[in-house]
Write a protein that binds this DNA or RNA. Sequence first.
RNA 1: GUCCCCUUCGUCUAGAGGCCUAGGACACCUGGUUUUCAUCCAGGCAACAGGGGUUCGAAACCCCUAGGGGACGCCA
Length: 500
Amino acid sequence: MCQYLLMSQVRTRIAPSPTGDPHVGTAYIALFNRCFAHQHGGKFVLRIEDTDQQRSSEKSEQDILQSLKWLGLSWDEGPDCEGDFGPYRQSERSEIYSSHIEQLLDKGTVFRCFCSSERLDLLRQQQMQDKQQIGYDGCCVNLSAENIAAKLEQGEPHVIRMKIPEQGNCEFEDLLRGTISISWAQVDMQVLIKSDGLPTYHFANVVDDHLMKISHVIRGEEWINSTPKHLLLYQYFGWDIPVFCHMPLLRNPDKSKLSKRKNPTSIGYYAAMGYLPEALLNYLGMMGWTMPSGEEKFSQEEMTANFDISRVSLGGPIFDTEKLDWLNGKYIREDLNDEEFIQRFAAWAFKSDKVKMIAPLLKQRVERLSDVASLGSFFFSGELDISAESFAHKNIEADEILKIVQFTLWKLELIEQWDRDSIEKQLQELAAQLELKIRDFLFPLFVAISGKAVSTSVIESINILGIDITRARLRKALDVLGGISKKQAKSLEREFRDFG
RNA sequence: GUCCCCUUCGUCUAGAGGCCUAGGACACCUGGUUUUCAUCCAGGCAACAGGGGUUCGAAACCCCUAGGGGACGCCA
């Protein structure tokens, strides 16, 4: 490996998909990629994987870029700072993928597949029922040239899949795990080009990694099983392969893969809660890695200077905020003088005109300036001090309260453009669906969001607080109300879905 | 179901065959400092998943079992 490093520049990448909130897992993988590249004097690249037209959004892309920057995870090349290998947004690279798939079509290592998604669904169902391995059955592999030409003539929608060897194993080296061997029989004939003409991750990622001269692919463990497909594509093209390194996945406290259903995963949440970016980043660096000295508090520069990827431990670390809290406090105490502390607090509290939005709400309701702090404190708090008793109400049963809070959470998750009107619309709709007076309906939300039954407009408050804090508070409310059992959740989900 | 990966205190981890009676940190408990609390300091509790090998010697190497996780999309 040393020789390899000397011979060519190390280039690593983070390739987020702009399909949701900026995820701490993305930052985690980005951190290790960045440290590795910079430790070797190489480059760290950011590439936007927006080939899913339905789910990708510009808003999400902006949020992700902004969040990574906030954490100090800047990139040497990316969509906003073009290097020699652009464009860095996959949606702008369509011609590249088309010309490359042509090459494979010519070589006959891929084939057009005209199977309908209905047939494939059925096939999958059947395979599940028969407890067979799930995968494409090869129906279109050997279509005749005439047949294909005819179908194309008629404009039949189709995808392009890759051929897979029928026998043998795919063996590859993982930088941390050694040799991994997966039987080709386990590998599906992956779709490379979707019927909309855009590539899937598997295809775009290989083409781009090659063209962008990525030397080390450091990514999550979830990709191990699809690595054979990627390797095979390199082989079909006749390209050199990069070094693969699969990091352990961040986990929920129940050990499952970190997910927003069970945990706050949005970087925005941690920012809104008042964690310092350097502390959060330090904490991420602590997941699966330690400084050789054992020192637990370290900056990204120190991490880079001492980085050694072989010190990554493979057990999936639980993203448990207790230690993050301690670390964050340590940063505040040790690294900020009083003046800096004031500045940091002000920058956080008054971020993006937050006070300007809060002021008119408070002004309506205070009689003395000294009322401001107690009335408005929930805008600057994290978790609220509430209990089941806080939700006691004369007209609504406990079950109903739980339902209101849960449904509100789900409704708010549906909002694409976060603003006052969308929130109001969702809540009005929900109150009507539940056949509740808006006044009664809103009560538990007041408690969950502001901690009190009486406060500034709950809709305005939700708008100002943002989805991350709102989500956390509604979830806390669910929690103190005794939580929802799996059974309850199922029936609630059904009821919610019936609302349409 | 099939395949792949993983397994040291509750949590993050140190550990590269003898330095291990397994170390550090968070959390928790006790005590000290502090007008309270927090900080800070001192101490305590607490783990090698189980079973077989290999070896003079295993937390470490090999095998099996168990447990956990992941993948199996025209998502990434």
